Amino acid sequence: MNALETSELGKRYGRRWALREATIELPSGAKAALVGPNGAGKSTLLNLVTGLLAPTTGGVRVLGRPLEAAAVAFVAQDKPLYRRWSVADLLRFGAATNPRWDREPAESLLRAHDIGLRERVDRLSGGQRTLVALALAVGKRADLVVLDEPLADLDPLARVQVMSVLRALEATVLLSSHILADLAEACDHLILLGAGRVRLCGSFTDLLSTHPTADLEDLVLDFLRNSEAAR
């Protein structure tokens, strides 16, 4: 079964389409890299599949059902955690606001990275705050975990830690990032957006077999260059 399906999904602001005719299928358990140049529609797509925006056209289904908030966990780029709260406070908030909440896997992730429950959020490093946000997503037991630039402003060690957590997640993951080398290590599917439309969508294996290039980075760059030249 597909974990995520969109059909002719679009969002228009006045006369301008931020995203249009986006049809996507991600199988359960996929780790999908969402890439594209600035203004391609990535943030719009993420906000639509998490329910933060209402579509102008089309719809979103998760595990064959219409989109429900409980089915999706979203880690935003700025990771809007309550900075004066402790980690334990955030876990209690997660338990109070999520009907599927499971505290143990959330605490297990934090223990694995030596993040204490008494630590205050504003005293954590950027990498630690990202890991706390991921712990909240894990505790939610969501079917789909969506992440918007989770690696931004992280040092190399923190990026390695975050990507190791993402690889181990049992949920389907949709991850937006500009760091293609990290995506290639953690993901197995690709969604490439350009000018508000889906340009490529599929598994790395299938895409590389039909667009023979050395690796994911070459595939994305070659396709974007060719698309730009054709415009």
Rank of each mutant, 00 (worst) to 15 (best):
R20K: 15
V173R: 09
L45V: 00
V35G: 08
L81G: 02
W85V: 01
A158F: 13
E170H: 07
R225A: 15
A171I: 02
A135C: 02
M1C: 10
R84W: 09
L208V: 10
A3F: 12
R167S: 12
G127H: 05
D78W: 04
T205G: 09
L144E: 01
P55K: 00
A70W: 00
L19P: 09
Y13L: 13
S7P: 08
A158S: 15
D188A: 01
E68D: 14
R61P: 04
G202I: 00
L207G: 11
L53F: 14
R123E: 12
V72W: 03
L134Q: 03
L151N: 12
A142Y: 03
A181G: 09
A186Q: 03
V138Y: 01
K31P: 08
A95H: 01
E8T: 14
R16G: 06
G36T: 02
S28P: 01
C201A: 15
P212Y: 14
L216S: 04
R159M: 13
A133K: 06
D215G: 12
L193W: 03
N2S: 15
R12S: 14
V75C: 06
R231K: 08
R16W: 10
E217K: 08
G51Q: 09
V60I: 00
L53S: 10
C187G: 10
A96T: 02
T172C: 05
L9N: 08
A229F: 08
A76Y: 02
G127T: 01
L81Y: 08
R231Q: 14
G36W: 00
L180K: 02
E68M: 04
L53P: 02
L157Q: 09
S164K: 10
L180I: 09
N98R: 13
N226Q: 14
A32Q: 12
R84L: 04
E217Y: 01
L26A: 13
L45R: 03
L109D: 06
G94L: 01
G36H: 01
T56A: 06
A76P: 08
P55F: 03
E185H: 04
